[in-house]
Amino acid sequence: MTIHIDGRIGEGGGQVLRTSLSLSAITGKAFVIEHIRGKRKKPGLKRQHLVSVEAAASICGADCKGDSLNSQRLVFNPSKIRAGNYSFDIGSAGSCCLVLQTVLPILFYADSSSTVTIQGGTHNPMAPTADFLAKSFLPAIYRFGFNASLNLMSYGFYPAGGGKIKAEIRPAGDLPKKVELIERGPLLKKRARILLSKLPQHIAEREKKILLKQGWFETDEVEIVNITNSPGPGNAVIIILEYENVTCVFQSIGEKGKRAEKVSAEAYNAAAYHHKSMVPVENFLTDQLLIYLALVSNGTFLTSKVSLHSHTNMKIIEKFLPVKFVVKEIASGQKLNCTGKIFRSVHS
């Protein structure tokens, strides 16, 4: 059975493609996608998306048609998932983390452990950062029965890129019968990391001043990290809130023409908003957890608001897996529930 997907569905971006690649490889179901990234100003496969296709195909031995730059149609017919030591180079500042997002679920269904090394951007404006993956996402999916670790080998900022991450992935064993993330527990620790590469030091000092001005952080909770192993200039403010049951990471990436004060304020406002909401899962983590929630096929978590991006992702997941997502309004935000038949990998 071949699944047909319109890339203009919902949010209409690259996540439609990435989720389709992951679940096609895991389920063994071929798919055809038309109008790839159809709601973007420049639709079709860009370098980062093409590397995701090539990476997924190499891991599951897929036969592809349309796997070329700017292509708006792709046919993907997977075969057997193979464990291994993989390496992929985006060749630009495209996001390493989004490529990893594509291949990580696949390698959880290999028959032995694997490593994946990816070169490109590690801290991009419109993508999860390596900090987010290592501190928030990977510990969260560990609760779901999926075990991987991440090493940030070098930083890569837009537009120079040149960063590198390496992930170690262990095959998923018996998954829990049900997962719940309803209570986040008390805040155990908070900290902020200001990353600075090949830019004037006053930028980081101004960002630190803004954070301290809010009165939430103590001086020793805000760290300026001068990056020495990145090929180009870059800046980011990363805020990490470690609760008893979940760790949440909030980020703002510096860009040319964007004042340091705005960079710092964006990260702080996102973190403060989430902390006041009392829900355990913030919006970006919500989107990242959906595939894993569906693979367990029985779970619930609370979040402040399910985005269009997440609603789109749920629709794609439901095309590949026998699950159903339901979102309900609650006093503190929204309750996301996933139920369905237990997924049995075609590779087991």
Rank of each mutant, 00 (worst) to 15 (best):
M1L: 11
H4T: 03
D6S: 06
I9T: 04
I9L: 11
G10R: 00
L17W: 01
R18N: 07
R18L: 01
T19V: 13
S24V: 02
G28P: 04
V32C: 05
E34G: 01
E34M: 03
H35K: 15
L45K: 03
H49D: 15
V51H: 10
S52L: 05
G61P: 13
L74F: 14
F76M: 09
K80V: 09
A83K: 15
G84K: 07
G91R: 13
G94Q: 09
S95N: 15
V99P: 10
L100E: 07
T102F: 12
T102S: 15
V103H: 11
I106T: 10
F108S: 02
Y109S: 02
Y109L: 03
Y109Q: 01
A110M: 13
S112Q: 12
S113V: 01
G120M: 14
T122A: 10
N124I: 01
P125D: 03
M126D: 07
P128N: 04
K135M: 15
S136Q: 06
G145S: 06
G145H: 02
A148D: 11
L150F: 10
Y158M: 08
I165R: 07
G173C: 05
K178C: 11
L181A: 06
L187K: 00
L187F: 02
L188P: 01
R191V: 00
R193S: 14
I203A: 01
R206T: 10
R206I: 00
K208G: 10
K209F: 02
W216V: 14
W216N: 02
F217H: 09
E218T: 06
D220L: 06
D220M: 12
E223N: 03
E223I: 08
N226K: 08
I227H: 06
T228D: 11
I239P: 02
I240Q: 01
N245S: 05
C248Q: 12
C248Y: 00
I253D: 15
I253H: 15
K256Y: 13
K256S: 10
G257W: 00
S264N: 02
H275T: 04
V279N: 04
D287W: 00
D287A: 09
L290I: 09
I291G: 07
Y292C: 05
L293V: 11
H309M: 03
S310A: 15
I316K: 04
K319R: 08
P322M: 02
K324P: 01
A331D: 09
G340N: 13
K341D: 08
I342H: 09
F343A: 02
S345F: 05
